[in-house]
């Protein structure tokens, strides 16, 4: 009896300690909830593996993604080339690893700049300051929202790419920096710039709506009464209160940005060859005859893309539930 009571007390203490920690650190609580969801953990693992492969691509890739061997083109999986080779005899495994790197660079850059910096900051500012600043930010948002997304992305990429190439060339000529053109930085920049321009509006609207409610609360009035500046209030008081929304938004945007990059490249206006992208790989492998003769050309990139997209969707769902305490 006493043992059972002791166990109960120990458990209750552990729960209490956890709750105390959670009250101090809500992230711990969120992680605790998320950790219990097996599908979410599996999804997180898939995202981490694919992104990790992208980061470590130069170390992991057995060949360069541009190295051609025309005599060994269109080979199936073998000991030399684990995932086979493409039409030009390039190693598919290396192409996949570097494509993961492209997805990683574009998604992280767009989410950081478009969602986290631009969307978050403009939403906080519009909601808190109100007045003409709010009107201006929201009207600019209206303009971007009303533009047809895909055709505008195509137009923007067509407009930006030559200019970015020119600019990168200038930077290489006038500074010690080199290798920007050959590493494909210009086309990454273009895709990321165009996507970031459109990705901030949703986040800004969401954050603004939340801030409109928050700014009427007592703790904000108190901060204002004690002479807190706009930046101080936004940074110290509003930001922590919208951070969960930001997490949800980031998880939703990651998948759609990755999908957009792949789509744009598939369409021929995204990341330019020879830089590897899943979009280009899917395009190359998708003809009916090609698929019948060399199914690995399509199946390899498709399997990675599908797992990544599934993982993003499931992780987003689980995060949503965890934040809402379900």
């Amino acid at each position: 009896m006493s043992v059972a009571a002791g166990q109960y007390t120990a458990e209750a203490e552990a729960v209490e300690q956890y709750e105390r920690q959670a009250a101090r650190n809500p992230w711990l609580l969120l992680w605790g909830r998320l950790r219990k969801k097996r599908l979410a953990m599996l999804s997180l693992a898939i995202v981490l593996v694919i992104y990790g492969a992208g980061i470590a691509a130069p170390l992991l890739a057995p060949y360069s993604y541009t190295e051609q061997n025309l005599e060994r083109g269109l080979e199936g999986p073998s000991a030399d080339h684990w995932l086979g080779t493409d039409r030009l005899g390039r190693d598919m495994l290396s192409r996949v690893l570097y494509s993961a790197r492209t997805t990683l660079i574009v998604t992280v850059a767009v989410v950081l700049s478009g969602t986290l910096i631009l969307g978050n900051f403009l939403g906080l500012l519009a909601g808190y300051r109100g007045g003409w600043i709010d009107s201006l930010i929201m009207r600019v948002g209206d303009v971007f929202a009303s533009l047809p997304g895909l055709p505008m992305l195509i137009l923007l990429n067509a407009t930006l790419l030559p200019r970015v190439l020119q600019w990168v060339g200038w930077v290489e000529d006038h500074t010690p920096i080199s290798g920007l053109s050959s590493s494909g930085t210009a086309s990454y920049f273009t895709v990321f710039g165009a996507l970031a321009l459109f990705s901030w509006v949703g986040t800004a609207r969401l954050i603004r709506a939340q801030v409109l409610q928050l700014r009427e609360r007592d703790f904000i009035l108190a901060a204002q009464a004690t002479g807190g500046s706009t930046w101080h209030i936004i940074w110290r008081h509003l930001m922590p209160n919208v951070s969960f929304l930001i997490i949800l938004e980031v998880s939703a945007v990651l998948g759609s940005v990755a999908g957009s990059e792949i789509l744009l490249t598939w369409f021929g206006v995204g990341v330019q060859p020879p830089n590897p992208s899943f979009g280009a790989m899917l395009f190359e492998g998708s003809g009916a005859r090609t698929f019948q003769a060399h199914p690995h050309l399509l199946l390899v990139p498709a399997a990675v893309v599908t797992s990544l997209m599934f993982a993003f969707a499931l992780l987003g769902d689980a995060l949503n539930d965890a934040v809402r305490g379900r």
């Binding site: 899917l282 498709a302 599908t306 997209m309 969707a313 499931l314 769902d317």
Partner: peptide, 11 residues
Amino acid sequence: AVTGLSLPDFW
């Protein structure tokens, strides 16, 4: 729903 959300149209 998750399948529909994960697979791009063109795919």
